[in-house]
Simulated assay, not measured.
Amino acid sequence: MFRLGELFSGPGGLARGAINADIGNDNFRIVHAWANDYDESTCETYRNNICRNNPGSVICGDVRQLKISPDNLADIDALAFGFPCNDFSTVGEQRGFDGTYGPLYTYGVRALTAFNPQWFLAENVSGLSSANGGNAFPKILADLRAAGYRIYPHKYKFEEYGVPQSRHRIIIIGIRDDLEFEFRPPAPTTPDPKDYVTVEKVFNRPMPADVSNNEMPRMTQKVIDRLNHILPGHNAFNSRLPKELQLNVKGAKISQIYRRLDPHKPSYTVTGSGGGGTHIYHYSEPRALTNRERARLQTFPDDYKFVGTRENVRRQIGMAVPCHGAQLIFEAIMRTFAGIEYASVPCNISFDNTIEIQQNAINIKDVTQERLIG
């Protein structure tokens, strides 16, 4: 059994995948130990769905003020941290280490050093690999390696894993150096585009009458009229809109603006934004999606209740990791430790775990620890 600690936990996408991971052997399960996030509504969502009987195990507060120590937090065998991606995202300005959120991954390194868990999972956007002119990613990998872990970075395309959404994320698995296990990313379960789970399939599933977070969004008549002129799969810039409905935009034209879903494909990436035409728009109705529909695209079950205002819940859902995709990765980790073979693929991001790199990592570790302590 692996006791899981989690930093930057969000509403529980990773946690839901972890506690539901099942390889048919009860000796290999993942159980919640503790979690931390800075937003109270997000923490309450996590408590209500992941650890209702142990609400005190979710610590709400800025990770920079959290005492990351066995004296303050329960011991763990595994760590998960989807460190904030705002400064690494390809949407907008990439500030990387120079931004507010870029350095926060170091608190994951601090937890690894403090608790020495058997393995970890770290998650971030695919834009991480190019942040800071391509220099941020090798530094992050080196710091994680320096904490005493062999690392296995891989870019996952979640639509290839049965998630009804085109969502590409870098996930780094680390296994402690003294443990003789080698992780391999699980092979895609739906590698052929013809097998992708489409939004039509997801939305055709009946919605329970008492389902939460399914309030219809408020739409102005002008937006409704605009959407009525946009075909499924199209946006405000590649559609023939009457002059009075056209957008007065100069320069770059973002394809996500008033973009309607294509019913025969997975959704485009669900984000936490929503203003200025960046809501996700239904393919057959002239409206934005409800939060429950967005949650379905993130593979949250319909009985997963989100706490907070409509806008807050939208952000929670958009920042989460798809539960189903996370579960498949956690199951691959457990099979690795159980010695069970599974369909896998090579890591598609190269990183050398050799002795030479290990020596370099030791040198980096000294610097890293000095920075964290300081």
Results as ranks from 00 to 15, higher is better:
Asp302Arg: 10
Pro186Ala: 06
Leu66Trp: 06
Asn363Lys: 15
Phe181Lys: 14
Pro164Lys: 04
Leu73Thr: 01
Pro186Arg: 07
Gln359Tyr: 14
Pro206His: 11
Leu79Met: 15
His264Leu: 12
Ala236Ser: 07
Asn54Ile: 11
Tyr196Met: 02
Arg260Met: 03
Val345Ala: 04
Pro55Ala: 09
Pro186Gln: 12
Pro55Lys: 13
His234Leu: 11
Ala35Gly: 14
Tyr107Asn: 07
His154Pro: 04
Ala236Gln: 02
Cys60Thr: 14
Tyr196His: 15
Val307Arg: 00
Glu40Asn: 05
Asn49Val: 06
Ala326Val: 10
Asp192Val: 09
His279Ala: 13
Asp75Met: 13
Asp177Cys: 05
Phe83Cys: 07
Phe337His: 08
Lys265Glu: 13
Asp22His: 11
Arg64Lys: 15
Ile355Tyr: 13
Lys305Arg: 15
Gln256Met: 12
Asn25Phe: 00
Pro208Tyr: 11
Ala74Leu: 14
Lys201Ala: 14
Thr299Leu: 07
Ala78Glu: 02
Ile19His: 00
Leu112His: 05
Tyr268Met: 10
Ala187Trp: 08
Ile257His: 04
Leu66Asn: 03
Ala326Asp: 09
Thr220Ser: 15
Val249Pro: 12
Gln118Ser: 13
Gln246Val: 08
Ser212Glu: 12
Arg287Tyr: 10
Gly162Ser: 08
Ala131Ser: 15
Ala21Asn: 10
Gln369Asp: 14
Phe81Lys: 04
Glu159Ile: 02
Leu297Val: 08
Gln316Ser: 06
Ile224Met: 11
Leu14Arg: 02
Gln256Pro: 02
Lys194Pro: 03
Gly12Tyr: 00
Arg259Pro: 00
Asp98Gly: 14
Arg167His: 06
Phe137Asn: 00
Lys201Phe: 03
Gly325Phe: 10
Ile68Tyr: 08
Ile280Pro: 01
Glu370Lys: 15
Arg52Ala: 15
Pro322Thr: 10
Arg52Pro: 04
Ser344Ala: 14
Thr309Trp: 03
Asp62Arg: 12
Leu245Ala: 09
Gln327Ile: 08
Leu79Arg: 01
